[in-house]
Design a protein around this nucleic acid. Structure first.
Lengths: 338, 338
DNA sequence: GTTAGCACTCGGATGCGTTGAGTGCTAACT
DNA sequence: AGTTAGCACTCAACGCATCCGAGTGCTAAC
């Protein structure tokens, strides 16, 4: 495609992203390419429509970019100078300072994303199957209950309640904890699930503890298969003109309840660092006029996580991609420093 | 007020709750009180308007109940036979079966409330200040980090990361844990905050641990003052005709971000078991045409929690109150059994 | 005290011209 | 040959007048 057509297409997209109104030839001639007349632009726009990049809501209206136009925009028209978002240091201090709990990192990252972009944000932690156990500890809760705390590398902590024999006091539980740690340190949660079962069969001691351990094995198995996805800023969607209709907004919000489909989307683009799913490309019918941006990040041991944004197809892709890349880097740093 | 006026008022409210449309005299005559003519009802309605219970959106429209009408309805017109909601056992098995973590109880209760009612739901756990510590335990996380697990009666568990001297190994941490437990078991978190500070001053040992303990004291102080309120089912609001306007819905959703005002509302009605705040009575401007129902529950040691519902003023109060009362009881049982 | 009847009100739907942003096409211009 | 000015054309949106009917208040009769 000739340079001029691209320039016009970019101008149309930029204007439409800003105004949400169909863009006319005169607008482009005045605001973006004042060396050309509206008639010339009109001819080009006609061509662009022919090529499948633009459409008209009705015959006497301006043009609106189609999905293929956004695709071209993201793939080829984006100026690759990183648009200035916010100072990295500023974000780090405002959102991600001194985070002790992992949930705090998730919450703060999500908040940073929603506040800086005004869109709905996603944060997914690395899958637990890939994490290695640092230590296991049983903390007495009541006579027959204990909390099993699992510490993994990267400081990600899981815990769950297990039923134990009432004859075990704090010291006994500590002794068991040491034994468990010795047994399992360095393995992945994945491995532990099977190991635990085997361990229970020929280990000495309280059948109650063994049953507890087996229960836990099951729980871990369950937690392992489901990734941990946090969604926030969901009702930002109500601010966009394309979601002024309450029914449509509701449908969108409901579709976010089913995290499975989003997780699938995240997994499928896991090769590239940033993937952009425009409109129907995301494969989720209720979100067919939303785009999903996902940035994968990697931790030390090759563990993968992801953060993302969801918003109307009409989205300032350049700025959003920069922001996402930035936050992704900052969050990755913070996680790695733990 | 005469019996007949009450009957008519009740009919108007019932119909309006169902249809969300102004109710005319003929509708009442046909559907609710077929022994009276529309003209009679018209006269009564005129009186009821005079008395401040009804209003007309415009002169040639039917009547709409005012806040005072709902107030009267809730206080005096509600038939006190508990309306059949769902079998208690059914709810218990569907939502609150075998819950090991406290967060699961909260999530399940909230889910039960939103699914059974279609409204926005609130779940507040008993305030942590009232809880007594059963044990404290430090779990090693990495060389310089440990997780401080605080177990309280009722099984409510708080944890937080503390920085410790890297010279402390698992056994040393366990020794410290025993010491801490001995020191603080049986006290409330409230007391611990001050005690911790004093303890740090004249205790022997690693300054890093002491600093960690002080940090934690601060954190606990913060957590103590803020009650732990979970809100869910927020976007159910989009289903109601009074919130078809995206801007209004957004305002409502945003106002839920500020939990402080809701907590105030919960605290203020803490004497009665169920309090009903109709429309502007809730004191939150953005929610002036929503009602807030709150059911307080008590645990063994006099700890108080609350669950609640938020929805448009036009609400089937009878059914909602019954549902709330039921779920409140079930949840209370589950918590007590832990 | 209740009801039938009737005039009246007014929001909402329907229909109709006007307006204006925007297009496509043609012819003139460079 | 590409660009541009000019012009006829289209059609959503808007304002305006009209109509319709649900619902009211009032009066007079039961």
């Amino acid at each position: 495609m000739e340079e001029r057509k691209r320039r016009i297409l970019k101008a149309i997209i930029d204007d439409y992203v800003q105004t949400a109104e169909p863009v006319g030839s005169r607008t482009i001639a005045r605001k973006y390419l004042s060396n050309l007349s509206s008639a010339t632009i009109r001819n080009e726009m006609s061509d662009l429509e022919e090529l499948g990049y633009l459409s008209q809501p009705h015959i006497s209206a301006g043009r609106v970019p189609k999905v293929s136009a956004y695709r071209l925009y993201v793939d080829h028209l984006l100026s690759h100078e990183p648009e200035p978002v916010l100072e990295e240091e500023e974000i780090r201090s405002k959102y991600l300072a001194q985070m002790s709990h992992l949930e705090d990192v998730v919450r703060s990252t999500a908040q940073a994303l929603t506040e800086l972009t005004g869109y709905t944000s996603l944060v997914m932690l690395p899958r637990q199957a890939d994490l290695r156990i640092t230590s296991l500890q049983l903390v007495p809760v009541s006579t027959a209950l204990a909390l099993l705390v699992i510490v993994t590398d990267g400081g990600i902590i899981r815990d769950s309640m297990v039923r134990v024999s009432s004859s075990l006091d704090a010291d006994a539980l500590y002794a068991i904890s040491r034994m468990l740690t010795e047994q399992f340190a360095g393995r992945t949660l994945q491995e532990v699930q099977t190991a635990l079962t085997a361990f229970a069969d020929n280990a000495p001691g309280d059948p109650q503890v063994l049953k507890g351990i087996l229960d836990l094995a099951e729980q871990i198995a369950k937690q392992n298969t489901e990734d941990n996805l946090t969604i926030s800023g969901t009702h930002n969607i109500l601010g966009f003109p394309e979601y002024q209709d309450a029914g449509k907004a509701r449908q969108f919000l409901s579709s976010l309840e089913n995290k499975e489909r989003l997780l699938e989307l995240i997994r499928q683009g896991s090769n590239e660092s940033i993937s952009v799913h425009i409109g129907p490309e995301n494969g989720i019918k209720e979100m067919e006029d939303c785009s999903v941006l996902i940035s994968q990040y990697k931790l030390s041991r090759g563990q993968k996580g992801a953060i993302g944004l969801i918003g109307p197809t009409r989205m300032p892709y350049g700025r959003m991609i920069s922001t996402l890349r930035l936050i992704s880097r900052v969050m990755s740093d913070v996680l790695q420093a733990r």
